[in-house]
Amino acid sequence: MGPGPGISCSIRLNTSLTPEQKKLYQDPEVVQHVLNTARNVVIYGLSSDPQKASYFVASYLQTAGYTIIPVNPKGGTILGQKVYTSLREVEAPVDVVDVFRPRHEVPHILDDAIAIGARVFWQQLRINDLESAERARQAGLISIVDLCMKMEHGRYSGGLHEAGMNTEIISAKRTHRWL
């Protein structure tokens, strides 16, 4: 599941956000808190195509121990999970709504996320509707923008490092890392 106790770090690479926006929507401590405490993750816009980014993220998160809840108007079953055609139909409590849809769809997805009482509204990498991000925050949700949930999990659990990537984590502390 989550990557374990927090690592303090400054993440500066690969974002379209300004430093002020990063403090609001990409705080490493908040991201680690979400990864550590979330269990049920809606993958909004999960594709049944195994080569799509949403499928990569969903299958990764499922293996990492999260329960993934697909939402896609096409319905059916993906990765062994029932696909809901609308976020409002999801019966289980939702920790994270991870959005894989174009920016113009984000506001109405947020309406649904607020309506079902989701705890975290997460706009995937390269999705950055800042108005919705701010509205999610005002509504009391944790709001994350322009980050990939798989990459962030990989950053703190060691996987991203194994792939040769710059995690920007600098620490001489020996910490537990769970997968």
């Binding site: 690592i7 060691g158 490092h161 710059n166 984590i169 600098i170 620490s171 001489a172 502390k173 020996r174 910490t175 537990h176 890392r177």
Partner: peptide, 8 residues
């Protein structure tokens, strides 16, 4: 230090 967090 970059690239090495002591292994758990």
């Amino acid at each position: 230090h970059a690239g090495q967090v002591p292994d758990p």
